[in-house]
Amino acid sequence: MERGEEEMIESAEKAKQDPIYLNALKDLIYQLADDDFIISFRGSEWLGLAPHIEEDVAFSSITQNTMGHALMFYNLLEELGEPEADQLAHERQSNVRKNAIYFEKKNGEGHYTEEPYYDWALTVVRNFLYETFKKVKLEAITKSSYQPLANVAGKVLMEQPYHLAHWKIWFNQLYHSTDEAHERLQARLLEASEEIGDVYELGHHATEMEHFELMISEGTLRERWLNEVSKTIQEFPSIDIGKKFGSGREGDHTPDLNQALEILSEVYESDKDAVW
């Protein structure tokens, strides 16, 4: 995306002057924040349960870092007049959340404190697809007309290659190991393809986002993402991609998100002043 006629918006004060611009901008940031937030919540549920101790350390480190990214995006929203970051993360109802639906999916059957029967194949596939997507979306956003957002995207992109590299290694190693591992990943990939179609959508304000050069178009985003995925999984782009549960970008969600929010708010209510 070339910076053309549109002027750069350097501050929250300036963004607030045009309500149409402001609403499109806020919606875009909510998508980024909510994606990072829910994926790191699902990650945090794995604490102590990962396949081995080194993975436990690595995964929790990635999760903590991703939560830090969510916080930076919520802070940007706060500057734009939204409630404070803590409230945005913990107190919003599911129908105003903008994360893609696939990312809220439970880690598996069972419950963290009881019998956590979680599926590692789902986690590897999901995180791999997430990090490839995050990379291309943020790359586009470094050229966004809203300077503070472009700056944060640039900062996140300096740290994120480690996350992507981590899940790429997991995916490749399992995909080329036993038949069982291969089949389980394949099944999870197929499942992902049926559900993840809202990920590259931009929601109700898609047209304005493109018009104001906040973001590239959905079509281009989709194309770049599939291209990035195909560097690791050649066959993925040829699979039909659907959105079985609707569009999280438009506020559609599954009961899995409510389940996550209930757990989150329990922890949050019990200790509101905790630093996270």
Binding site: E54, V57, A58, F59, S61, I62, Q64, N65, G68, M158, E159, P161, Y162, L164, A165, H166
Partner: peptide, 27 residues
């Protein structure tokens, strides 16, 4: 960015080092 890397050992300066875990106790 994205490439593998190693560094010399801080104790003996040897270059013969290998990556155990990209993610240590902190990010």
């Amino acid at each position: 960015p994205g490439n593998e890397w190693t560094v010399a050992c801080p104790y003996c300066d040897s270059d013969f080092t290998s990556m155990e875990n990209v993610f240590g106790p902190t990010a």
